[in-house]
C-alpha cells in the first residue's frame, strides 16, 4: 500500500525527558501513565510533581488501555500542511478508566461514527524505530 511506502511526514513529539519516557513505553507497546506513589493518583500529561499531594515520588503504572470517547473534532480542512492529505480525520479525547484523559485518534472508526461515550481500547501505531503513537480502536470486549 502506498501508505506504507510513503515516508511519514507528520510532526513528531520530542523524545526527551518525561515526555520521552511516556513514548518509550509506547514503543514497547505499553500505555503507562504516571501514578503518584504518595496519594495513588494517576496523571497525564507527565509532570515532575503530584499537584494533589506535592509528592515527587511516582511510578509509570500500566494502564488497562480501556476508555471512552470524551470529545472530538473532525478536521475537514487541515490547518497544518503535514495533515493536508489526511483529511478528514478526527483528534479524539479519550477518558481512560484510570481517570486521566489523553488526546489521540480512533483508527478503525470514521469520524461520522464517533460518539461521546463510545468504548475504545488502546492500540499502537509504529511510526519508525524510535516512535510509536498510542491510538485507539473500538473496544472489542464487553466492558
Amino acid at each position: 500500500m502506498s501508505e506504507q511506502t510513503k515516508p511519514y511526514d507528520k510532526p513528531l513529539p520530542t523524545l526527551t525527558g518525561l515526555h520521552g519516557e511516556f513514548y518509550a513505553w509506547c514503543r514497547d507497546r505499553e500505555l503507562r501513565f504516571q501514578r503518584c506513589t504518595g496519594c495513588g493518583r494517576y496523571r497525564h500529561v507527565p509532570r515532575d510533581i503530584c499537584a494533589h499531594c506535592s509528592s515527587m515520588e511516582w511510578e509509570w503504572a500500566r494502564s488497562g488501555g480501556r476508555g471512552t470517547v470524551f470529545t472530538w473534532t473532525e478536521v475537514v480542512r487541515a490547518l497544518h500542511p503535514a495533515f493536508a492529505d489526511a483529511t478528514p480525520y478526527a483528534p479524539v479525547v479519550v477518558e481512560m478508566e484510570e481517570g486521566v484523559r489523553l488526546l489521540s485518534k480512533v483508527v478503525d472508526c470514521a469520524p461520522e461514527e464517533l460518539h461521546i461515550g463510545m468504548a475504545v481500547e488502546v492500540e499502537f501505531q509504529q511510526i519508525g524505530d524510535a516512535l510509536t503513537l498510542p491510538v485507539f480502536r473500538r473496544a472489542r470486549r464487553v466492558q
Binding site: K10, T71, T73, L79, A86, P91
Partner: peptide, 23 residues
C-alpha cells in the same frame, strides 16, 4: 501541544476549542 496534540493533528486554535464546543 508539540508532544501530545500536534502528532495527532490537533494543531490549531479552532481545533482546540472545537473539543470544548462539542462537549
Amino acid at each position: 501541544a508539540r508532544d501530545f496534540y500536534i502528532p495527532f493533528g490537533l494543531t490549531a486554535p479552532p481545533q482546540w476549542y472545537a473539543l470544548m464546543a462539542r462537549r
